[in-house]
Write a protein that binds this DNA or RNA. Structure first.
Length: 111
DNA sequence: GGCGTGACTTGAA
DNA sequence: ATTCAAGCCACGC
């Protein structure tokens, strides 16, 4: 049995994000039972570059690509999202709620 | 070992 | 509607 830490859980959930869908740090945090620790999700994403985690599918609650500055280029994150059919303007996702993917609803709670 | 920062969220004024 | 403040935990110096 493994011992899934907060970070590992975030990676697992992020990897399960469907194509053309996006989610928020808080949604993942809430799924993990730590809605108040949304910052940790973001920090976990900081290590996501060492994992196969599509961090570009994870944005803040406003649908804004807050972490795009952490990607290699400058508009890489936006390009990736648009490549999946997600429209992004001014670092903000259009029809965010339409692309929103809630792990707490789409995925079954492990608890 | 203490202090500050950070890819956030929520609630209240 | 917008703005301010607080909470959360891990990492770096």
């Amino acid at each position: 049995m493994e011992e899934p830490n907060f970070f590992d859980k975030v990676y697992q959930v992020a990897k399960q994000i469907p194509f053309g869908r996006v989610t928020s740090y808080g949604a993942i945090a809430k799924y993990l039972g730590a809605v108040r620790s949304a910052r940790m999700v973001g920090w976990a994403m900081n290590n996501s570059h060492t994992k196969d985690v599509p961090a570009h599918r994870v944005v803040n609650r406003n649908g804004v690509l807050t972490g795009k500055h952490h990607f290699d280029g400058t508009n890489l994150m936006q390009q990736l999202l648009e490549n999946e059919g997600v429209k992004v303007v001014d670092n903000q996702i259009i029809n965010f709620k339409d692309h929103f993917w809630d792990p707490g609803k789409e995925l079954e709670s492990p608890y």
